[in-house]
C-alpha cells in the first residue's frame, strides 16, 4: 500500500512539573487531527525526551511547562537535538510562559510557543501548516 507519510509528534512534560492535563488534551487534539502522537508522561529530563524523539523518529516535539522552568528545559532540548544532529525535529512549547521569555525562546530555536487560552483548533492548524512529515 502506498501510504502517505503520517505526521508523528511527541508530547512531553519536562522537569518536575506535575500538571499534565494540558499535555493530554493537546495529545488528544493531535490524534483527532490524524497525527500519531507519542506521549512520554511526566517528569522527563531533556536528555530522555531527545533520546525518545530520535528513537520514535518524530517530526516535532511539543513541550509543556507550567512551572516556570521552561527557559532552561526547552532550550536544553533544542541544544541536545543540535548536538545529536537531529535538529530537523521541530521544537514547540506551551504553558504559562511570559512574553519576554517567548521572545527569547523563539530566538533560540523554539519554533512556536502557545499560551493558555489558545484554541486547540489554532494549535492544530499551526502544526498542519508548519510541520511536514520527513520527506527524505
Amino acid at each position: 500500500m502506498k501510504q502517505k507519510r503520517r505526521v508523528r509528534v511527541m508530547v512531553a512534560k519536562p522537569g518536575l512539573d506535575g500538571h499534565d492535563r494540558g499535555a493530554r488534551i493537546i495529545a488528544r487534539a493531535y490524534r483527532d487531527a490524524g497525527f500519531e502522537v507519542v506521549y512520554t508522561g511526566l517528569h522527563q529530563t531533556p536528555e530522555e525526551i531527545v533520546e525518545a524523539a530520535i528513537q520514535e523518529d518524530v517530526d516535532m516535539i511539543g513541550l509543556s511547562s507550567l512551572a516556570g522552568a521552561h527557559k532552561y528545559l526547552f532550550l536544553a532540548v533544542v541544544e541536545l537535538l543540535r548536538e545529536k544532529a537531529a535538529d530537523d525535529i521541530v521544537v514547540c512549547g506551551g504553558g504559562i510562559i511570559p512574553d519576554d521569555d517567548i521572545k527569547r525562546l523563539k530566538e533560540s530555536g523554539v519554533k512556536e510557543v502557545f499560551t493558555p487560552g489558545t484554541p486547540l483548533d489554532d494549535i492544530v492548524k499551526w502544526v498542519k501548516h508548519n510541520i511536514t512529515p520527513r520527506q527524505d
Partner: peptide, 9 residues
Amino acid sequence: SGGAILGDR
C-alpha cells in the same frame, strides 16, 4: 481520524 496516541512509553 487516522491518528493515534502512543502511550506505552
